[in-house]
Design a protein around this nucleic acid. Structure first.
Lengths: 202, 202, 202, 202
DNA sequence: GATGAATGAGAATTCATTCAT
DNA sequence: TATGAATGAATTCTCATTCAT
């Protein structure tokens, strides 16, 4: 399993690793409110008390996962793409990286994608739950929009459709995929070929 | 003298409507666990006690929404489509109906779509939450798959891509859209043109 | 069924009769706290709202049953006994009346006995429930003690055992019987012969 | 460093004891429905939250009391009796053990007896409350019947009265006694001499 | 008289969090 | 670091009671 060990620079022990893995899985699968610390602790094989040694509270654990695990993990996926090439290749490479990550046996990528997407979606300010605004700058997918725009200028992408529209469509598509991957697991999940997405823009 | 049967019916149906509307909005927006009955009651303008007058418990209310509101609402959308015509027209009409519903100012369609999709996705067997299996037969979107298959035979759809793959892609797309619509509201939501989806298959 | 219609002098309608019958059965069988007004209403075939036409509140209904139904019913049982005869005959006749009432098909006697006994037993002053002290003077069985005392003087009852002891024993016996009768119903209930009790004192 | 296993065990058993003692007293005195968990917690000197640390819910606590405290306690009382001797001595010894337990200053025996009897009597299938059937096999007092039967064969017990009748009478007697003991407390309770009961059968 | 919609106080239950060891 | 006992605020749920018709 190609874990991005570098992201876990702050991990102090295997216990911490286990906690983060369990927490990310559960938060991504069930959502914040539906996940209890006891569940995480049980899944991680430790007592719930220990969670409080590593993290101030439930929310801090969640926050840590978003900022220090999920976000870097997705950023890293795209990092290696050569953004200097033509937009259509950038888009292709980025999507390819994401689809490959979702296709891989390592569930972590789908959890991470899902976690970041949940932030966008799950929450209206309310009694329970988390304020989204905090994560407004965690736009993992902000490159899509600029990429589409450039692709049009370069004459590769259709100008029939507005940039916002196409960007939205691609995002929706990725969101849907990430959920399906989390829900179905790597075995049952059938990842669409990249040209299904590329066809939207070309 | 007690009210007449009709009077009671009227009161019941008005209250039920208010409760169901509030509940669907909140469940769709925040999820099952993150929505409290007090919130629903407050939003519906009644006491939490009244919720228990109409529904046995929180889950029964949720269940009722899924089976008697959301499911019929989506089914109704597609009902008017002429399924006798060629598959590509069926797909077009169905998608059109859904996209139009999401585009419309009436939030109910996005809530319903979202609620049905949530069942598929966000809820996993666990301590809290609801068992998904119960709703396995609520395949609102099962027509997609057969439609794709037929479209291929009719020579209108590309045979490059497997039916499952394309079906999955369309579903992911709709899922993503519904989430975006719920999250952004009718004003900010930009609905992609239908040919973005049709391009996937043609 | 030989109802003691005279006791129900205050009964204003068949509805009231039905309510009292249902309430007495349920209170006697399940106890005050475990019986809900909805249960009583359902059993009596009316709405719970109607209960409030006849009685101020739950407790008032209970109180009415104790004072105006159960107590008179038991008193009436013993009323016909000739208290001028020798104590051993008084005791025999009284016990006989009670045992016969419990043996009869009419459940009302066992309910009444049970209700009165519950007052003695069920309650310690507390959050829920009723204060017993109120019913301290409802000593349906106070004749037992004086009867025993007299029987000793008349030379018919054994003086080996203290009056209090024997009285207590008989009371315990009746209590146990009433519970058994309520629990088992008239079909399964086997009522001990009266001489089993008489043997205690002779 | 966490406490040792033994330390935890000690804490657990002390707390459990306190909770069980309070719960048995309250359940036996006031009944299941009339006893609140806050009362039990307060009486046991802990928070209601702790009750849920030790027991899944209110009913589980009740169930534990019946099966693991009350039942063994009464069984133990009779255990030491020599069942090889003649039936009349067995009956005498058993009744003696029970009466002595009820007479003793230790309230626990009366609570236990009362709790077991409550199961037989006060609780009927219904909306609230507990199903009795579950405890049908907890026949603490089943020895009585066989003992009577044998006593008749041995020529010590009167054959005038049917076994079922006598058994029922003794049971009723014990039931009544247990209630009286719980209600009156050890100071006011006057326990009848054993020969009052023995006279029933000899 | 009669109904059942509606309320809210109170009881049951969950779970994040603290803390002694 | 590690455990699990302990707490109490927040939530779900129950049910006596009120009230318009």
């Amino acid at each position: 399993m190609p874990r991005t060990h570098e992201q876990f620079e702050l991990i102090r022990s295997e216990r911490m690793d286990a906690i983060l893995t369990s927490a990310m899985f559960l938060f991504a699968t069930k959502g914040y409110d539906s996940t209890t610390l006891d569940e995480i602790a049980k899944d991680a094989g430790c007592s719930h008390g220990l969670l409080y040694h590593y993290f101030k509270d439930k929310y801090t654990l969640y926050d840590y996962l978003v900022n220090n695990v999920a976000f870097p993990m997705i950023v890293k996926l795209i990092e290696s793409v050569n953004f200097a090439q033509k937009a259509k290749f950038v888009l292709y490479d980025c999507l390819n990286a994401i689809l490959n990550a979702l296709k891989s046996e390592d569930d972590q990528y789908s959890w991470a994608t899902n976690l970041l997407i949940s932030i966008d979606l799950s929450i209206v300010e309310g009694t329970k739950s988390i304020r989204v605004s905090k994560y407004a700058n965690k736009k993992v997918f902000s490159w899509i929009s600029s990429c589409i725009e450039r692709g049009k200028l370069e004459g590769d992408f259709s100008t029939d459709k507005s940039t916002r529209e196409v960007t939205g469509a691609i995002l929706c598509f990725i969101k849907g995929l990430a959920y399906a991957r989390v829900r179905l697991g790597s075995k049952k999940f059938i990842c669409p070929k990249i040209n299904i997405v590329m066809d939207m823009v070309l």
